[in-house]
Nucleic acid binder design. Structure first.
Lengths: 349, 349
DNA sequence: TTGTAAGCGTTATCAA
DNA sequence: TTGATAACGCTTACAA
């Protein structure tokens, strides 16, 4: 390995001078600068990032803790983080799928001394104490948090508002018996979307009915599985709100297998607006969430808070979730030809 | 920040002893060990990873260089890497979307001293020299490479064989005029799949026709856009092989808009077997590629090569791509009711 | 079994 | 403008 010492020797200067050249110090003669650069090029010298950050205690790296990396949503979040990070000349170290709090803590521990700050998405409430411990060591930005952590900025998605808008769309189309495919138990997003669903029902003078709340798991397979359960309900619902698009995809496929037609026999709405939603058959009415922006904002917030001279007071951002009306909910319940509702935005959570 | 020195002082021992306790050295008395652990707990001591790896010159981290992070494929690759890495107690630092070779090189340079090895996916041939430079500093595993780099192990996907199998499926169904939606120019995967398509045609005694090779870009929008071009071809093709599933999705959506039915009016085959392929309407016949395994194998290969006492000779693995027959290609060309071909595997590249 | 001290490859503080 | 040299937080001979 070529070190700063080799370059110094080769250029006939001290290591301090080499360091100065590479860090853009102005107090270097043109002559020295030239010979240092020449030597570095000759030797193909690459500075050792680890050593550098040991002295500066700046790593120019941010950690990312996610529950999983599966599917459009997480990949878009990471993409957003990566994009914003690169623009600010930051790298990211990613760690996901922690079986339990202990494993998550181990990952964070490992990052100690390798990152300047952390972006964490922790859907599990039991990890609050762990996050607090982590947040006492470096700046932490929380994504869609279930809990408050003193001093941590948060960025969330308007799960409640988005779900409410989707279900309101269904009630306005005349549907009275609307089922929901819930997300996995204990998941914040799932719970908030369920709340939004229930609120929209109440807003329409309907009573939430536990029988209509089907257990899902955010997966296509899960959505597919729910279909039979759905079809056994009596009287049969006329509409379904799937708490995410993957479940809607699975459900619609199962309905097709059962020779049921969407939206004629069932209105179906989803959540997330995954890339293929608009290309589905029929195109899926869903709630758009900008996962990439979630990541981007988090990265920017983190960099801001790391570069702040004193610990800034935390901010809490909620990204809007907008209803996107396509075809899968049809125009009106039970085939009656009511006016088709227009696309509308739901601004808050 | 609590350092090893604080723990030593608090426990009444030297820093060497603290270090020994944390590194599981046997030459420590039970008494010392106990008091060190107690002190560490009291102070909530977390070792500084960067400092540790400076002395050991082991970072327990691997770098990942990808062209992008968009879509199912890359997210599954990262997921596979992350999974295998965690099992071996490795972390990953990710960097993607490098506009040019210079930017990619900068990312690798930045990683110097922070990683033990690198997994790189570089679809651009012009980066060969850069990769060679990188590979001279630490072990590099190449994913789907376009070029050879001395000493680098590679893991690829059977693009050629998979595409050939898909198109062979179409010819066996009786199709004679088969178009292809090509991937972006300069992309290895795209080029290999095109080669496979052409070979399958020749195998069936058909002459590849440039007119039938439509320019695509691996995106849904691109697939959608190709539809009109496709429909203007005279005589009109009866089948289309899309070089990836996203384009197939966009194409099928456009065909639907044009009141054309798949597979009745067009047989459509894709490549990748993305998560929703089986749930599409109609379910998509495609070529399955295990992106996660690609990542997993790469991580394992990297760890193996890093831990080898001497530089091991490079290996070149090709992951099979298996044809998955669903509905989108129908049973026989032009509505004739030929026997439906069975799912079959294509083993090689 | 323990402690002292010499690194690891940098940056940063002094004098010169 | 330069060069010694002391950090940075840790591991690891080597001595005791």
């Amino acid at each position: 390995m070529v070190t700063i010492r080799d370059v110094a020797r080769n250029a006939g200067v001290s290591i301090a001078t080499v360091s100065r050249v590479f860090n853009g110090s102005s107090h270097v003669s043109a002559e020295s600068s030239r010979s240092v650069r020449a030597a570095a090029k000759r030797l193909d010298y690459w500075p050792h990032g680890g050593a550098r950050s040991l002295t500066t205690s700046l790593t120019h790296t941010m950690g990312v803790l996610l529950p999983d990396l599966f599917g459009d949503f997480f990949s878009e979040v990471i993409r957003g983080i990566d994009r914003a990070a690169r623009e600010q000349h930051f790298q990211i170290v990613v760690s996901s799928s922690h079986a339990d709090t202990e494993e998550m803590l181990a990952a964070a521990r490992f990052m100690q001394g390798r990152i300047d700050g952390l972006i964490a998405m922790v859907p599990d409430k039991g990890s609050a104490a762990a996050i607090r411990r982590i947040a006492s060591r470096f700046p932490v930005i929380l994504l869609n948090p279930r809990f408050e952590v003193a001093g941590c900025s948060t960025i969330s998605i308007a799960n409640f508002g988005g779900a409410r808008a989707a279900v309101e769309h269904l009630t306005q189309l005349g549907h009275r018996r609307i089922a929901i495919l819930k997300g996995p138990g204990g998941n914040v997003d799932a719970e908030e979307r369920l709340r939004g669903y229930q609120q929209a029902l109440r807003d329409a003078g309907l009573q939430p009915d536990p029988e209509l709340e089907l257990e899902g798991d955010f997966s296509q397979v899960g959505g597919h599985r729910c279909a039979s359960e759905l079809l056994q309900l009596a009287p049969r619902p006329t509409a379904v709100f799937a708490a995410n698009d993957y479940m809607a995809v699975g459900l619609m496929s199962a309905l097709r297998d059962a020779h049921l037609e969407v939206p004629r026999d069932f209105a179906v709405a989803g959540f997330d607006d995954i890339a293929i939603a608009r290309y589905m058959n029929p195109p899926l009415t869903t709630v758009r969430v900008d996962a990439q922006e979630l990541g981007q904002r988090a990265a920017l917030a983190l960099i801001t808070s790391m570069q702040a001279p004193s610990k800034p007071s935390p901010t809490h951002t909620v990204l809007p979730a907008a209803l996107v009306v396509r075809v899968s909910c049809g125009s009106a319940a039970n085939g009656s030809r009511a006016a088709r509702s227009r696309p509308r935005l739901s601004a808050g959570g």
